[in-house]
Amino acid sequence: MISSLKYTGLALLGLLVSTQFAAAQGCVAVRHMSCAAPSGSSAAFFKQRTGTWQVSAGYRYFQSYKHFVGDVEQKQRVEQGTQVINTSHAVDLGITYMPSLRWSVSVNLPLQTNDRSSLYEHYGNPAAGSGINPDANRFHTGSKGIGDLRISTSYWLINPATLPKTNLAVGVGVKLPTGDYKATDQFHRKTKEGADYTITLPVDQSIQLGDGGVGASIELQGYSQLTKSGLTAYANGFYLFNPRETNGVKRNPTATTIDLVTGEFSVADQFAARLGLSQSIRFVPGLAVMLGGRVEGVPAKDAFGGSNGFRRPGYIVSVEPGFSYMKGGYAAALSVPVAVYRNRTRSYADQLDPLGLKHGDAAFADYLISFNVSRSF
């Protein structure tokens, strides 16, 4: 029999892999979606019988406002007040069924509300001598609704009934375009006489509720108990393949000509990975703390299909502290990834620049808040 400390130490991994990777923190448009099946990966979960159900809910928040070109922060944007500010709240609802101790099937659906404030999308950024938006008027656009549904299945390579100290699970999934990828809002303009009016346009790609493509994902998640005191190493990774090239949404429907490369929104691949350690706390049964690292982002080119369309590729490297608590069939976890490195890489369109000078920017957040709860039956 494995000790209660071992159960507690491994229990954290069950929460870690069920904690949804968040949308990358800013305009790097990683969709809000579960990136790891919330199947039980802890000894505590393995004790449950075949036919176990688990329901879960996760909340995520971030606010992006720091602009980067490559890994260089464009500090003048905040100083001049021209930064774009994205504020995102998401609740991920999930349900998992375990036909056996080694096999789980999960369904996850995100609910989102996003707000974006900017100058350039409306009157324009102030420019010396141009007379454009001299008062630096800032306006908001937003989106609200369900995101892209994800169905996944995961299988443990080692029979958990033997309660091994090390295990590895392999998973696959499908993402369905249930989120509105054509969401619109009102954008402000000025007449020649200076009067305000609004027009309806698609909101920025970073706050669209979906990407409009059917995707397929592969996942790995594993753990290894290192000490009898409950110190456990954990790791999980995820890659989403989005073969569709563009989703037909024009960035500027009022334009007289459409750029064939960046005129429509791209349906981009996504990736995420985590690695860290968790430690159970002896004097508080069920409590464990963790510290790890994570990376998440969007590649400039897709693994399959074309890479045309507008996207903001890049990635974030974060340090991720957190803790979890389990009692009975209930579990909760809180983590706060803090960005230590941000890089807005050159997009496919940037790479087509014959002079090699083009390099777009993107805004990133400093941190993310992720809180998850679950109940097993």
Rank of each mutant, 00 (worst) to 15 (best):
S3R: 03
K6L: 08
Y7W: 07
Y7T: 10
G9S: 03
L10W: 03
A23I: 01
Q25W: 15
G26Y: 13
G26T: 08
C27Q: 15
V30D: 05
V30N: 08
V30R: 06
M33G: 14
S34M: 13
A36C: 11
A37Q: 13
A44T: 10
A44G: 14
F45N: 04
F46D: 07
K47Q: 12
K47E: 14
Q48T: 15
T50N: 08
T52M: 08
S56A: 13
Y59M: 06
R60S: 15
R60Y: 11
K66G: 02
H67D: 13
H67I: 09
F68I: 10
V69W: 00
G70T: 04
D71L: 08
K75A: 12
E79H: 14
Q80F: 10
G81W: 06
Q83S: 09
I85S: 09
T87Q: 09
H89W: 03
G94R: 05
I95P: 07
T96I: 15
S106Y: 06
L111E: 00
S117T: 14
L119G: 02
L119V: 13
Y120G: 02
G124V: 11
G124C: 02
A136K: 15
T141Q: 06
G142F: 05
K144A: 15
K144C: 15
G147E: 00
D148A: 01
T153I: 04
Y155P: 10
Y155M: 00
I158C: 08
N159G: 13
A169R: 08
V170G: 11
V172P: 06
K175E: 13
L176Y: 11
P177D: 00
P177V: 01
T178N: 08
Y181E: 04
D185W: 06
Q186A: 15
F187R: 00
F187S: 00
K190C: 05
A195P: 02
L201W: 04
I207K: 02
L209E: 01
L209K: 01
G210H: 07
D211G: 03
G212W: 02
A216W: 13
A216S: 02
L220E: 01
Y223N: 12
Q225R: 10
Q225T: 03
S229V: 13
T232N: 12
Y234Q: 06
N236L: 14
G237I: 12
L240M: 09
F241N: 06
E245L: 07
V249E: 02
T256Y: 04
D259S: 08
D259G: 10
F265L: 14
D269S: 09
D269V: 00
Q270Y: 07
L275P: 01
L277K: 11
S278T: 07
Q279N: 02
R282L: 11
F283D: 09
V284L: 13
V284C: 07
G286Q: 03
G292V: 04
E296F: 00
A300F: 00
K301C: 02
G309W: 11
P313W: 07
G314M: 05
Y315L: 12
S318R: 03
Y325G: 12
G329M: 05
Y330C: 05
Y330N: 01
A331G: 15
A332S: 01
V336T: 03
A339H: 09
R346D: 14
S347A: 10
Y348T: 08
D350F: 07
D353Y: 03
P354V: 11
G360R: 13
A363H: 12
A365Y: 10
Y367L: 04
Y367K: 07
F371Y: 05
V373D: 04
S374D: 09
